[in-house]
Amino acid sequence: MLRPYLAVLSARFQLVLQYRAAALAGFATQCWWGGMKVLIYSAFYAGARAAPMSFAHTVSYTWLGQAFLMFLPWYADPEVADMVRTGAVAYERLRPVDAWGWWYARALAWTAARIAPRAGLMFVTAAVIMPLVGLGRWGLRLPADGAAVALFCAAILAAALLSATMTVLLNVVVAASLTDRGANAFAAPISIVLSGSLVPLAFFPHAFVPFLRLQPFAGLIDTPFRVWNGELAGLNAVGAIGLQLAWTLVLGILGRCAVESVMSRVQVQGG
């Protein structure tokens, strides 16, 4: 049943993983940004009277944000965008597979393959090297116990599943509008702000925070990182992961309807 989807997932994962230069460049950029943000928070906390999170938690949140930056659906799958532009998207219809599942498997592989090397390097740097060289105060603190680690892994997995549903939705917009510019232009700012990647969601005005934590983008960054920090533990964490999965289901169903409707209308021009 799942054979075609697993095959394309693994092929794409291996292919994207080969882009070592991109991973290293991304890692360097993310170290730089992470360092800048930690310095800014450091200055902010020096003068702050009441902060919504402890400094240590904010710093961990920041490094995790750099490690898992690629969860943000800030652009459509470039492979799909390319196929739409060249008309090769026609071949997609020639495969005996469900169109949504096909794009979903590829989006998941693409996200995972970009995250794996960057997250690995970032953990080693922020959680191991920084404390060793005496920068522990500005480094990544490990979770309190094994339960938190297990819940964090579940939340990260849910974030990956959720992120891929958003990428597929962007792909649909690209296929419908025949260009990736529009979709990418609105996806980046929305996802960066609403996920907590720009600043943790806790830093938003108090009245907004509960609502911000209900919307789907929170499941990409804010939810797993609060699990890491232990702010979400036990049943609260399980509930938050449930919310991530619920959004995955909703956006998945929405995406599947949208893919079918767009692909049945798509007219392959020329040739």
Partner: peptide, 22 residues
């Protein structure tokens, strides 16, 4: 147009089609 994956060796593209067509 091409149906094979541009960056994959031909044989890997064939293997992928094997799984796609079950």
């Amino acid at each position: 147009r091409t149906q094979l994956w541009w960056d994959l060796p031909v044989i890997d593209g064939f293997d992928l089609l094997r799984d796609i067509y079950r």
